[in-house]
Design a protein around this nucleic acid. Structure first.
Lengths: 114, 114
DNA sequence: GTGAGTAGCTTGCATACTGCAAGTGACAAT
DNA sequence: ATTGTCACTTGCAGTATGCAAGCTACTCAC
């Protein structure tokens, strides 16, 4: 196997996750969000072109799967794959660190479905 | 407290760590590296201006402390603060995820000192 | 059937960030 | 006097970000 920057697992993870938005989209997915408008309405106010770009990248890296939830007009939703769900422990340790060092931060409640 | 993007701990963490290089510098620090040339010689080939910028940012966010290790000519080295060391579990979970999903990746050995 | 609304994007464009290459200043060693 | 080392700094072209607006394909109310 040949790697883009190095054979370090952290480096390869950062080539997918290393920006200010990708992990927030994954956070939303972990919280139960699935649709474009749900991501858009998160408090960080992601721009729609950036969201579209990140969803596309997450799909091609196999962290997220896109599927139609209705036909006519066709509408899509996004869900985490196993690989994507595997990032939950990373988010959890990040939350622990963040809550310790940024007083006043809090976690969002999970979105309820069905 | 008022936050830049939101009161989410992940968001606030990403405002410091959310790019392709910062966590690699922290990885190097965790591995025991301290000097400019040591960071420069990591296999990812960080550009020197980016390294200088990231070290400055890490210092102002209180993750890294800069100190002179000699006078005449004055030379500096960098070490993790407690806040910076607190990121070790995050790196560890990232390594676990990375090794699982990028076959062939490996962790670097710690630098020996003294 | 016209108008308004909704969902999931796409496009244009100015500004900000990234990264390569080269240069700088203060020394130490030969 | 020359070469080398270390810790940066600078110039500049290319890439990414983010705001605003637009687009497509519907549904629903009137």
């Amino acid at each position: 196997m040949t790697f883009k920057r190095s054979c370090c697992p952290i480096t390869n993870a950062l080539d997918i996750l290393g920006d200010r938005w990708t992990l927030l989209v994954i956070r939303d997915l972990v919280l139960g969000k699935r649709r474009y408008q749900e991501f858009i309405s998160s408090p960080e106010n992601i721009a729609s072109n950036i969201l579209a770009d990140r969803l596309k990248q997450l799909e091609t890296s196999g962290l997220v799967a896109k599927r139609a939830y209705q036909q006519s007009p066709i509408r899509y939703e996004y869900v985490l794959t196993k690989k994507g769900k595997g990032l939950e422990p990373v988010l959890e340790t990040l939350v622990v660190w963040g809550q310790k060092h940024f007083p006043g931060t809090m976690v969002f409640p999970r979105v309820k479905r069905r």
